[in-house]
Amino acid sequence: MAITKKVTAYYPNAKSGDDITESYLTLLEKEYNSDLKKMLFATSVCSDDVNVSTDFRRVLSRPFTMGGLGGLPYSGFTGMVAFSHHIPDGGDAFIFYGPHIGITDEGELGRMRRIGQKRLTNSCGALMLALERFQSDDDVDTYVPQSVHYDYQQIQLEQTLMPFKNKILTADNPKKAITDYTYTAIDKQIKKLVSMSLNEFHCERIFLLGGVIINTSEEYNDYVDIRNFDVIETKSLEPFKPKSILELDAFKNL
């Protein structure tokens, strides 16, 4: 498929959302004997309506939504604790997270043709807006209080990315760079929140699956570039340290 070549030119390890869903849920069932009917699913992805790339929510019940603009876990510590308290008895926790970026049929990153539209629009719109402000040298710290109150998530997103501003602007592809650095920020925040609330989890395992979602036109499947797949043993006596499943032979053979 032509779109696959365009996606993998930027993300060589990307796979379709359907493939990601089947592969990882099968891995959880067969390698970890996880009961998917008792698994509570959470997401920290952008609130954009295009982010339905995987079928996790069709297999796993009641997704707990942590993310907002850009995919940052805006629900914070309170949200993570609430999620930890909702896991079924004998079940596991599973959190899928990451930013998203569009790609046109011609292979341009940062834009896409959405369902029912002929024109191209930005994806992720919040990240492309942040990039435009960085390029125009706008300072998010100078926003007036009313703006902070009524546009909290966008301003928080830009402040979170501010330490990466120079690297983003000098990258070969700033649109890809701002997306990649957003992934870094989300990954760090999710793991920090899990660490802070670990004692509140009554399940034995927390699975963390993170990656970048690549949105395509409606004729094609969306793709996901997986960046990490970790398991946290909540009863472990060792200090908090996610264990990467990426090193398992079972994962390598997906």
Rank of each mutant, 00 (worst) to 15 (best):
N228E: 10
D230G: 08
R62H: 15
I245F: 09
T179R: 02
T179D: 03
I87D: 07
L246I: 15
S23N: 15
N13G: 12
Y10T: 06
A14E: 07
I155W: 08
I178T: 02
K15L: 13
D19R: 11
D141M: 00
V59W: 02
I213K: 04
I115Y: 13
R111T: 11
M196T: 10
K176R: 11
D141R: 05
F134Q: 01
P242G: 07
H100W: 12
D172P: 01
L60H: 08
E29T: 09
H202Y: 03
T121C: 13
Y32S: 01
S197G: 05
R111A: 12
R62G: 14
P239C: 06
A9T: 06
T4G: 06
D180Y: 12
G102Y: 06
F41T: 00
L169C: 01
T65A: 14
E233N: 08
T104Q: 10
N253W: 05
K188W: 14
Q153W: 03
D92P: 05
K15T: 12
K191H: 01
S136N: 10
D151C: 09
F77M: 12
Y183G: 06
D141E: 11
L161I: 02
N166L: 02
I245L: 15
L161H: 09
K38G: 09
L120I: 14
T21G: 14
E204F: 04
H202W: 04
K38L: 02
I3A: 10
T4N: 13
F251C: 10
P88E: 01
P12K: 02
E22A: 14
R111S: 11
L129V: 12
F240Y: 03
D222I: 07
T121I: 15
G98Q: 07
